[in-house]
């Protein structure tokens, strides 16, 4: 555990040292969120009745999405891991007396967390002071906020877990690049990264909500502003737990198979 903590610290310090980069990143995400909200506002003006959630809840969704981008963005994968699989550097890692799945999982999580911790605060702070309905509203209730935190962690774990699945699949494919592009764009869309899930037509949304992708950013971001009912939340959290267990188990199993392959075939 200590090992992973120090890895996190290392990444965090690195992030702090490149503060101009961090500032630029924050500014970018802020501008991005701002533009998104303007689009939704325009649609709201066009037809307020067709809006599936309140404009204020939509703004909160977008600000939280920007603030925690590093936790959920599918494209933020660890290039070092891809490289070590492709060029065979993986052999060294296999020599170490630690479980490779756990190690990568923690490294990934630390990477994303270090980035997010550094960047989320200024965005949340500024967004909180923006006027209604464009800013980050207060959570619907203390209970909602608590559940938001829980589902945020679950959703984060789910994202890392799914990325792990993609890394591990790299072992079995001839074209890691293609695999990556395919999954990144699918993930972006199906998690609610392009437009929030409530904006999809009901029948499409109902299917999407059952998929593992909906168990990532979607749940936490919607719970925060209270745009899910009690039974919906229960269902969503149950699905999160289910998918997290299933995807992690699948990832571990594939990882064991991959390691055996590497050991047998010599990479």
């Amino acid at each position: 555990m200590k090992k992973y903590l120090s890895f996190f610290r290392l990444r965090f310090v690195l992030g702090l040292q490149y503060r101009v980069a961090a500032l630029a990143g924050i500014a970018t995400q802020f501008a991005w969120g701002f533009m998104e909200i303007m689009i939704f506002t325009a649609f709201y003006r066009a037809d307020a009745d067709a809006f599936p959630m309140s404009l204020s809840a939509t703004s909160s969704y977008i600000w939280l999405q920007q603030a925690f981008l590093a936790l959920f963005a599918a494209w933020m994968m660890d290039n070092e891991i891809f490289d070590s699989i492709i060029n065979g550097g993986i052999a060294y890692e296999l020599c170490r007396p630690i479980d490779i799945y756990n190690m990568w999982f923690c490294r990934n999580a630390a990477n994303r967390l270090a980035r997010a911790v550094l960047r989320c605060m200024p965005i949340l702070l500024v967004a909180a002071f923006l006027p209604e309905p464009y800013g980050l509203a207060a959570p619907a209730s203390a209970g909602h906020f608590l559940l938001f935190l829980v589902t945020l962690v679950l959703g984060f774990a789910m994202t890392v877990s799914f990325c792990m699945l993609i890394y591990v699949m790299t072992f079995f494919t001839i074209s890691p690049q293609g695999l990556r592009i395919l999954f990144t764009s699918a993930l972006e869309f199906l998690t609610g990264g392009v437009i929030p899930l409530p904006f999809f037509p009901d029948n499409v949304r109902q299917v999407m909500e059952l998929l593992p992708f909906a168990a990532m950013q979607n749940v936490a971001l919607r719970i925060y502003s209270g745009s899910m009912s009690g039974s919906e939340m229960l269902k969503a959290v149950t699905l999160q737990l289910f998918w997290l267990t299933a995807v992690t188990a699948a990832g571990k199993m594939l990882c064991r198979m991959a390691v055996r392959r590497v050991v047998v075939q010599g990479g």
């Binding site: 101009v20 500032l23 990143g25 970018t28």
Partner: peptide, 8 residues
């Protein structure tokens, strides 16, 4: 370092 902003 600060180039990310140009992405917008």
């Amino acid at each position: 370092d600060g180039l990310e902003f140009m992405n917008i």
